[in-house]
């Protein structure tokens, strides 16, 4: 059974001035443990796609199923990581990481143990009592990831989680996040406008067209060297090949 399923999903939104069709007839299914990246030109509805799965908005037509059930509102089994870390300045790292547990009224002692464990495992144990203002951009985004992982979601939605970072931090954190997520065996949907990032991280790439967005290509990414970490993947012989092929599919949607 697919973990995430979109059946002929369309979405439109309305303003006084106009009606905008963001997605049209999107059919996608994602299996458990898959790492799927969605690429497309800016404004193609990638973020809308994620918001639909996150239960933040409803499709105008069609259906979104999570674990075989129609989705109504944000699900507890889904974690959503946004472009900015949105850490709360007035909370220290531990309190930030426990925000979700507090909101969902989970057993705070258990969540705390898990949070400390994750912070320790991912190199932040010395920063538990630091405030966000004292952390670097890369560390902040890692804290945001742990804030999501504390809730033990089965599915993780990443909305351009690296785009606010500088390039080096981005590569470095890409490796980190990809390692963490594979280690935790999560199903991941990553939205990005960076094709290289998508190929280096994902098992599968969905290409979306310009608005109204629809999925125009669905490519599997397989490296002969198994599943290398993203910066390694960029050095594989297949990488360039994938890049060229998907770029061909992508470029017809890109208008400068």
């Amino acid at each position: 059974m697919a973990q995430i399923e979109l059946r002929r999903v369309s979405h439109r939104y309305f303003t006084w001035k106009e009606e905008t069709e963001t997605l049209r007839d999107v059919d996608v299914s994602v299996e458990a443990g898959e790492f799927v990246a969605v690429v497309g030109p800016s404004g193609c509805g990638k973020s809308t796609f994620l918001s639909l799965i996150a239960g933040l908005i409803r499709p105008t037509a069609g259906e979104v199923l999570l674990f075989g059930e129609p989705l109504r509102g944000p699900s507890r089994r889904v974690g959503y990581m946004l472009q900015h870390d949105h850490l709360f300045e007035w909370r220290d790292v531990l309190q930030n990481v426990l925000l979700g547990a507090e909101v969902r009224r989970l057993d705070l002692r258990r969540a705390r143990r898990r949070a400390l464990d994750l912070l320790e495992r991912y190199g932040l144990s010395n920063f538990v009592r630091h405030t966000p203002g004292q952390l670097s951009g890369g560390m902040r985004q890692r804290v945001a990831l742990i804030r999501t992982l504390v809730l033990e979601p089965d599915v993780l939605l990443l909305d351009e989680p690296f785009s606010a970072l500088d390039y080096q931090t981005r590569l470095f954190l890409g490796d980190e996040v990809s390692r963490i997520l594979r280690e935790q065996g999560k199903t991941v949907v990553l939205v990005t406008h960076d094709l290289s990032e998508a190929i280096s991280m994902a098992d599968r790439i969905l290409v979306m067209s310009r608005r109204p967005g629809t999925v125009t290509a669905d490519r599997r990414i397989v490296f002969s060297a198994g599943r290398p970490v993203p910066t390694e993947a960029r050095r594989q012989p297949e990488f360039q090949e994938y890049f060229n092929r998907i770029w061909e599919e992508l470029r017809e949607h890109v208008r400068v």
Binding site: P74, L82, H86, L99, E102, V103, R104
Partner: peptide, 27 residues
């Protein structure tokens, strides 16, 4: 005060009261 923070709270399934208490007032 933190439109983005509210989106995060919404994704976490926060109630309006929680958004006010945990995000809006401190921010």
């Amino acid at each position: 005060a933190g439109r983005g923070k509210l989106k995060l709270m919404e994704a976490l399934g926060a109630t309006k009261w929680q958004m006010l208490r945990l995000a809006v007032l401190p921010a």
